[in-house]
Design a protein around this nucleic acid. Structure first.
Lengths: 205, 205
DNA sequence: ATGTTTGTACCGACCGGTTGGTACAGAAGC
DNA sequence: GCTTCTGTACCAACCGGTCGGTACAAACAT
């Protein structure tokens, strides 16, 4: 039993708006995407939109929520679900997946979270906090994997999982950004290679 | 004798606009900064603005030019001018300077180039190309330093300067972005620490 | 020296179009 | 028949950009 059902039709329209707006905002940014753009692209009327969202800001929050959910369920959890697998291999495969994602997108669009963090952090405190929370979740997940590797003796005992995880996230975000601005997938490839090399620093000798 | 002088007064007004608009755009972004904002903050009338810039886009290009010039002259060149100093030390000091810069700004504002790259790369091809060129210049500068270190035997002979430089720029940009969204300077500190550790990978054994 | 012209620098009202947001009547579904 | 949903008309505020006009100093002509 769902907490609240909200009749099937409404949910579909709402999802449609979320889908279209999410894609548009990833590509053009929050400010550069107007409500009319979203409405035109989704075929939803204005009155209908304001039935589901009380403002553009509200839409933004909904997109952020959905983005986090999708990221956790479809990216983070699948990559690190197996708690007995080799943490280094898991992270390496995670890096490859991010790389492949950029390749499939032809280096366009960047990271949805990174884009919004860059555009809105200094402008909108509410969005900033949500985005910070999302990056925190990412970092914590990686830190757990690294801590697991340390406990199992696979990684150095002196390793600081939080610090290493922070760096991995930062390096990945930077790599995606530079890949976007150069439109050159080899930028991403090089960064992933260097990142894998960096992982060797953490391995127990 | 200057190539062209353009009477002192006019240049001052133009510079004033560039100053104010540059700061405003770094803080709020390109789209979220209106001409009226710039005009109000600089005390310049609209007619006067359009005497110096033919459009908002034109202003954007002028800001980019000025940004590149300042970055090269006031950051890149001072840090790597000495061609006999230890490359590793030079890069370490460069990292510390970037870290200190973020500290002074209280983690606010991020990287002007990174911000615009994120906001405009997929929206405005002209801006994208200019920004890509700016990052290229940064990367090339770092690559030259690394290549110098390799030639002198200070760094490993197997080192790929272009790849390593690319990674350094990416990691720094990512670190600045995450520092901005978390408003936590320790994020930057951790990333710089990890980056310095990464540099040891390049050192000749 | 004096009046005239010219180019630079500047202002603020105004334009058409777009923005996010509202009001509301009516259709659809139970 | 009541709630849920949806299209349309509308709004004030704001957007980037244009307009006619002004102030003033240097260049010029007389």
């Amino acid at each position: 039993m769902a907490v609240e059902v909200r009749s099937a039709k409404g949910a579909a329209t709402r999802d449609q708006i979320l889908d279209v707006a999410g894609k548009l905002i990833q590509l053009r940014g929050y400010h550069a995407t107007s409500l009319d753009d979203v409405l035109k692209a989704s075929g939803v009327g204005k009155g209908n939109f304001y039935y589901y969202f009380k403002s553009k800001e509200d839409l933004g929050y909904a997109i952020l929520d959905r983005m986090l959910q999708a990221f956790v369920e479809r990216t983070l959890e699948p990559a690190f679900a197996d708690s007995v697998a080799d943490p280094v291999v898991q992270i390496q495969e995670f890096l490859d997946r991010v790389l492949d994602n950029q390749r499939q997108r032809s280096c366009i669009g960047g990271c949805p979270m990174g884009n919004l963090a860059s555009e809105l952090s200094d402008v909108h405190e509410g969005f900033r906090q949500r985005l910070a929370g999302m990056f925190l979740q990412w970092r914590v997940t990686l830190a757990e994997v690294l801590a697991r590797g340390r406990e199992s003796g696979r990684l150095r005992s002196g390793l600081d999982p939080a610090s290493a995880a922070q760096f991995l996230v930062a390096a990945l975000e930077g790599a995606i950004l530079l890949t976007k601005v150069t439109r050159d997938i080899s930028v991403m490839e090089r960064c992933v290679t260097e990142l894998k090399r960096h992982l060797t620093l953490y391995e127990a000798r």
